[in-house]
């Protein structure tokens, strides 16, 4: 059977591309690193892939705000291809810098005219921080009439992943946008403490509104998150694996497995 083709998009400053590709391959997909120039010059086509992954890094140095320059490049140079990709029901995941790009390109939380309605801004601590965080998936409590993010199907209540960013504070344009996210079940991950309570710094490492760590669009097929699931696909990447010897794989792997499984089933 053909493996699901994943386009791991890279450009100047992308730096989590290889491990993201590794995670998709480990989840049964077939990932390819594609430089954005190849799509713009039409040597490669987005339509040939089923999943688009925007990995972490500092695209173009995050010079005009994290992810801003690549977000614009996608909007102005590849806008129609991306709209078509989304309309066909294909999957997109943006991790860390990728999440920043999706938000700034208006793909998340998402609306018809791709207008930016949220942002990820400099952490309240004003510094880059690498730390592990507990994440809860509030999607579990919502009723079936709500959207389920296809990437987190069957997730446990609480997972543990690392964050590493300086601009991850989620804010929405206004209260209505935020309320809409809650109501439509688009909040996929929230920072919390080890018991699942929504707490402040350092559990919420950046000061995000409503402790938001990851959101999806209204279809549940586009996911953006600040934590790095690709950094926890094997048990040994856990900071306490020497103590907690039991788990066989990392908790991030399931995200990639869900994506690949969904893509296989529906496409």
């Amino acid at each position: 059977m053909a493996r699901v083709k994943v386009c791991v998009l890279r450009t100047a400053g992308t730096n989590c591309d290889k491990e993201t590709a590794f995670a998709f391959d480990a989840a049964g997909g077939s990932a390819e690193l594609v430089h954005v120039n190849r799509l713009i010059s039409s040597e490669k086509y987005l339509k040939d892939y089923t999943i688009l992954a925007l990995p972490g890094g500092f695209t173009y140095g995050d010079d005009l705000g994290a992810g801003k320059v690549l977000a614009n490049e996608l909007r102005f140079k590849l806008g129609s291809e991306i709209k078509k990709f989304v309309a066909e029901g294909k999957l997109i995941i943006g991790i860390c810098n990728g999440f920043q790009i999706l938000v700034k390109a208006g793909l998340l939380p998402g609306n018809d005219e791709l207008k930016q309605t949220a942002s990820l801004i400099i952490n309240d601590s004003a510094k880059f921080e690498d730390r592990w965080v507990y994440l809860k998936s509030p999607g579990h409590q919502v009723t079936t009439s709500h959207v389920r993010c296809v990437w987190t199907k069957g997730f446990p209540e609480l997972i543990y992943l690392p964050v590493a960013h300086g601009e991850g504070k989620f804010i929405s344009e206004d209260k209505t946008t935020l309320a809409g996210l809650k109501e439509k079940g688009q909040i996929v991950f929230q920072y919390c403490d080890a018991k699942g309570a929504l707490t402040g710094y350092p559990d919420n490492p950046n000061g995000s509104m409503a402790n938001i760590a990851g959101i999806c669009d209204e279809t549940g097929r586009i996911l953006g998150l600040m934590p790095h699931p690709e950094r926890h696909v094997s048990a040994q990447q856990h900071p306490r694996w020497c103590r907690e010897k039991t788990k066989r794989t990392g908790e991030g792997l399931a995200i990639f497995q869900n994506g690949v499984a969904y893509a296989k089933k529906y496409l």
Binding site: C16, F128, A164, H228, Q237
Partner: peptide, 15 residues
């Protein structure tokens, strides 16, 4: 230490 990304590339076993 926290200001440095010590886990990028995914190979961090003892952090």
């Amino acid at each position: 230490i926290r200001q440095y990304d010590h886990e990028v590339q995914g190979g961090s076993i003892i952090k």
